[in-house]
C-alpha cells in the first residue's frame, strides 16, 4: 500500500522536475520546485509512518518550513535583481 503511494508521489516529483527543467519562465521553475518540496514532505511522512518512528516526522516539518523560506528568498532575490537591472538601464 505504502509502495503505491510512494510511487505516485515519485511520479508527481518526476513530472514536476521535468517542468522545472523545461521552464519556460523562472516562475514556472520556482513553482515546480515548490511542488517538489511539498511532495518531499509527504514522501518523508510516508516513510516515517512506514518505519513507525515519530521523530522522523520532524524532518518533514523542517522541510515544510525551509521550503517556504527558500521560495520567499528566491522571489525576493529576483525582485531585487530586477530593480537593479532597471537602475542600470536608467543610467
Amino acid at each position: 500500500m505504502f509502495t503505491i503511494i510512494s510511487i505516485s508521489i515519485l511520479v508527481v516529483m518526476i513530472i514536476a522536475l521535468i517542468r522545472a527543467i523545461l521552464g519556460p519562465t523562472l516562475y514556472d521553475r520556482i513553482l515546480a520546485v515548490n511542488v517538489v518540496g511539498t511532495k518531499t514532505v509527504l514522501l518523508l511522512s510516508v516513510l516515517s509512518v512506514t518505519a513507525g518512528r515519530g521523530d522522523m516526522v520532524d524532518i518533514a516539518l523542517v522541510y515544510a518550513l525551509i521550503n517556504f523560506i527558500s521560495v520567499i528568498a528566491v522571489l525576493r532575490f529576483f525582485e531585487y535583481n530586477k530593480e537593479q537591472q532597471a537602475d542600470v538601464e536608467q543610467q
Binding site: A20, V36, T40, D58
Partner: peptide
C-alpha cells in the same frame, strides 16, 4: 545559473529523502 540554484534545491531535497530511506535521520535533517 539561477535555474541551477533552484535545481540544486531539488537535488538536496531528493537526496535527503534518500538518506531517510537509508535510516540516516540526522544526515537527512
Amino acid at each position: 545559473l539561477f535555474a541551477v540554484v533552484i535545481l540544486f534545491g531539488i537535488y538536496s531535497l531528493v537526496s535527503a529523502s534518500f538518506f531517510v530511506n537509508l535510516d540516516a535521520v540526522d544526515v537527512a535533517l
